[in-house]
Nucleic acid binder design. Sequence first.
DNA 1: TTGAAAGCGATACCAG
DNA 2: CTGGTATCGCTTTCAA
Lengths: 328, 328
Amino acid sequence: MAVTIKDVARAAGVSASTVTRALTLPELVSEETRERVRRTAESLGYHPNRAARGLITGRTGNIGLVVPDLGNPFFPSVVKGVQARAHEADYAVFLADTDEDATAEAGLVRRLSKQVDGIVLCSPRMADGQLRALAAETPVVLINRRIARVPSVVPELGDAMRQAIGHLTALGHRRIGYVAGPRSSWADRERVRSLRLVVRDKAVELVEIGNVTPQFEGGVGAADQVLAAGVTAVIGYNDLVSLGLLNRFSARGVAVPGALSVLGFDDIAPAAMVTPALTSVALPKEHAGRAGVDLLLRLLAEPDRSSAIRRELPTQLMVRGSTGPAPV
Amino acid sequence: MAVTIKDVARAAGVSASTVTRALTLPELVSEETRERVRRTAESLGYHPNRAARGLITGRTGNIGLVVPDLGNPFFPSVVKGVQARAHEADYAVFLADTDEDATAEAGLVRRLSKQVDGIVLCSPRMADGQLRALAAETPVVLINRRIARVPSVVPELGDAMRQAIGHLTALGHRRIGYVAGPRSSWADRERVRSLRLVVRDKAVELVEIGNVTPQFEGGVGAADQVLAAGVTAVIGYNDLVSLGLLNRFSARGVAVPGALSVLGFDDIAPAAMVTPALTSVALPKEHAGRAGVDLLLRLLAEPDRSSAIRRELPTQLMVRGSTGPAPV
DNA sequence: TTGAAAGCGATACCAG
DNA sequence: CTGGTATCGCTTTCAA
């Protein structure tokens, strides 16, 4: 059996109450007993049972993290950020992967919510209404999704788009394709909106191409349509899609960036591994994870006036080999 | 406040004890009350507080999972497997990423161990002694590491090596390089051992090259040494290293597989995204995660006679574009 | 078949 | 500054 507070109390010749105080409210205890208690606790290898503590304090010291698919390198990065920040704050992390399944998501969240103080939802698939209902009963922070009155962390997408389009137009591209992601995803809707906005007052023609799954295969599948669209540059919904495009272009012998420039979003690790390397707009990942936890902690500290917290994190264009001057 | 067992008891007109029984030991309760209790519990949206339950039963319903680096796509796959299997068994998963830090690992594990029933340690960096000590006080399952008397899940590495070398020799390669991973890692020692064994009775010369970090950069950094070694094929410690090799070879204009064949281990997703795609021996990932949880559950069910459980999971060579006939 | 009471480990409150 | 006691939500004897 593990060593409990009673063991420490007995060994130190004090009551359990005093042990608690010595360990968590040092100023309420004489220096002498405090030190004695601490030493005995140390020597016995005592660590408070967090579950028991949570029972009475109402705080578990855990946070929940829900991600749609660890298979996309974007999410492990976010998880790392959440992990790191949570541990700094002495919180442990419950992880759940929903496998892109919006239905499972709700159930998982429900189950988690009992054992955590709050939940970080990463790119949730859930419907607006459900999400808002959930936020009403449990502290929730959204990553990569924005909903009125729910705290969230999102990238500065307008900026990201300006960088992307600015880069391509500077290279002379005037007819640019966009391979759209899942129609149901907030991120895709935002990207499209933002893209149209940025393109409006430039002499640029935007060609939107089908909706694909946000994966490598999605890009591979859309590549031929892109070629048929007669664009000189193409932007993928995310890096996975863009890597799929690159792969298929290479297979078809299309020169990148000679004949066609390719750009993605996220800046996941594989983007820098392929040849030519993929130019990508880096969206916050670890940073987003950390910020998400920060928001959650603040929310836990002052539940009332912080429900409207929203953070926009900066993005950064990473220029690599897959983009170049438009062919003449 | 959440709905507790008392709320259900009151609403159903029975005692708390009866509610517990109706829900967890149905045969001890008359069918009539059982149904009534269940219905009220349902309608009130009651879910037992697992922390409180754990306090008395000594079971938390949680398992811990420790991985060295979510940045390597290998580990998110394992995590997915653990997740999936754990949820099937109604367990929740605590995740910790140690950032390849062996010191942090021990601390993290200690903290976890208080709130979980057992721990799955993925490719632990920890020293043998520490690991065995840990296993003595907490149920532990090792993934990708083998230690006497500690349950573990490992790949059939001998087989993996035979497939790798068999493939390359069939293609005519006689002088093969191996770019070694971290000297401190069990996986690398095993790979080397296995490799030497397989090579012994073949007419193959093995050239071992430096120790590198198990990452893309490690491969990039070792590539020039590989070229200088005058081999016709090279095997990287893992796919990340091999992808680094490919990348640098491409930058130096070395034709793959024309001048040099490249092979890796793991079969992570990016291996199929690059051009030429990386030939790789697929090691169990999700499968390993699932198996790890299975072992842990068995260990929890019958602590005594299962301490020697060990599972070896099959591997599979994935032939892709990065390997071809040896140059003449 | 059911209820009352004890207790898991820790903390909060109230006396002293 | 310290100890005793109630309590968190639940399960498990022990009686009835």
